[in-house]
Design a protein around this nucleic acid. Structure first.
Lengths: 299, 299
DNA sequence: GCCTGGGAAAGACCATGTTTCTTGCCTCAG
DNA sequence: CTGAGGCAAGAAACATGGTCTTTCCCAGGC
């Protein structure tokens, strides 16, 4: 025998009526059944909830505390059902979106605005996680949508990638760096500079990209610093500690603090888009995809 | 069939394992039984919690919300048992005390201090209620102790009254009142003044006392004002709106704002004490009674 | 394409727990 | 003392939870 909600319901009814027989009538069960259930509950708990007298029952101290607590548990259970039902009936829905903040700086805010104007009942949960975690989340149903750089084809099985934009790769330098006076920088020149890049452990894709871009250059790429965020990345470059390869879309974040220069020969642009499951997309997810595309076509 | 805690326990296990068979092993029940219980729960709720596939199960949106909620309900149920058990085993106890603030101003704070030094695990709940409510609370087990003026014998059935002190009745006047220059005031003189008293509806005992004190005087007692608290009572007297009959123990509250004068012939002093049930007193209640008596004998 | 293994569900049957009915005991009021 | 009201114990009935067996579906390997 384990404590169940039925025990709590019965106990609360008896405690409030202070009388087993009257509570039984109210609950539409017989008095002995109710009496037995209260006794079973007391046996399970190991202490008395009620003191019995000839005419009625009275709460013990423990029973008084348990009454308050039982009401809270029952209320919580009711709320649980209500919350889940709201989601099931569509009157309340959730959308889980994975995103990389720097890549989506120009698109996510307006897309969200447009989406929530059309579907205010949907709660949007944003998840700032790595590409690997986004892909896993999509496969496991934890996320419905992710904004990311196009992954390898193997990682896209069962998913759909829709390209939103292409982002050219630039060399980011400080405004007073010697390269800042050039209109374009050769890869062979760039490779000789100390580089600043996120850690290989957390951003393996980015390091593969670096290796691929500089694969044909003479000389070995040297990573001088590994900042832990875009803000400290920009600060390190600005201070002259090194240069970095980054997408053109970061220009609006860096502003006048950095100069972003084209490279020659020009590396292939990044393909940035939305990934979602090929099947089982909710109405909310479809609607959000539509808003994101409209935002981009409108600029 | 109604939702029970068992359903929630089973659902949480399946949701976390994402597999009915593995969860069944963990719960020590057979897979079909577990499958049945989840299905019964879904039927009861009216919506699906899980999407079934060949190899596993996956949460629906509603199921995901219900998982979070279910964990909270189960945790709350566990906390409920713990809280009640703590009270039952005495490691945590409660003491409900009824009191009238003005009568107990000198005794309650030090009694509480002494009590909580000796029994820090007992939570003291103070209830500022009328005499009638205190007596009802004692009879119904809602209070264990009450500080009050000795009630009529009929109201004390099943209860025990222990006198702590006698409080002489005084006439309270403003410092610039003509009576203030006297050393004692005759009842015959006092009855001619406008009186200030709490409302008859809320304080029937006090009005009975007034009637009894002035029963032998010529002239009719006139109530000019009915303030709703001791603070406004003192203010009205201080302003010269009238006089009042009050226990000497209020002198420390009124301070220099009022002058309390003996009456002649002197009315019978109030008997103030502790009332508690004759049987079924807890260790905490006994201990508190002891502390209160020690506080008074020590002054 | 076929076979195998893993997992969920359906159906028959059994076990356990809940509930009803009846009776007994206690207290209290008249 | 009697009658009424209320709680608990015990036997029987009933409902639900659980086991065992079988079926169906899907995916992976050969």
């Amino acid at each position: 025998m384990r404590m169940e909600l039925r025990h709590l319901r019965y106990f609360v009814a008896v405690a409030e009526a202070e009388n087993v027989s009257r509570a039984a009538l109210k609950l539409h069960v017989s008095q002995p059944a109710l009496s037995r259930q209260i006794r079973d509950l007391e046996d399970e708990l190991g202490f008395l909830l009620l003191e019995r007298s000839a005419k009625s029952v009275r709460l013990t101290d423990a029973g008084r505390v348990f009454l308050t607590e039982s009401c809270a548990v029952l209320q919580r259970a009711e709320d649980a059902v209500k919350a889940a039902r709201a989601v099931a009936t569509g009157s309340r829905s959730e959308l889980h979106i994975g995103y990389a903040p720097t890549l989506t700086a120009r698109i996510l805010p307006p897309a969200l605005r447009a989406f929530q104007t059309g579907m205010p009942g949907v709660r949007v949960n944003l998840h700032d996680v790595s590409t690997e975690e986004m892909l896993a989340g999509l496969h496991e149903g934890r996320l419905q949508i992710a904004f990311l750089v196009r992954p390898r084809a193997a990682a896209l099985r069962g998913l759909r990638f829709e390209e939103l934009m292409r982002d050219p790769l630039r060399l980011a330098v400080a405004p007073n760096h010697p390269f800042a006076r050039r209109r374009v920088v050769a890869l062979a020149d760039a490779v000789r500079e100390p580089f600043i890049a996120y850690s290989r452990k957390d951003y393996p894709d980015y390091h593969e990209l670096l290796a691929s871009v500089f694969s044909a250059t003479k000389g070995r790429l040297h990573i001088a610093e590994e900042p832990d965020g875009v803000s400290s990345l920009i600060s390190a470059i600005e201070a002259g500690n090194g240069v970095a390869l980054m997408p053109d879309s970061l220009a609006c974040i860096a502003g006048a603090r950095l100069k972003l220069l084209p490279l020659t020969p020009a590396p292939k642009s990044l393909s940035i888009g939305i990934v979602s499951p090929q099947t089982g997309r909710t109405t909310a997810a479809e609607s959000f995809l539509k808003c994101a595309k409209e935002v981009l076509s409108g600029k």
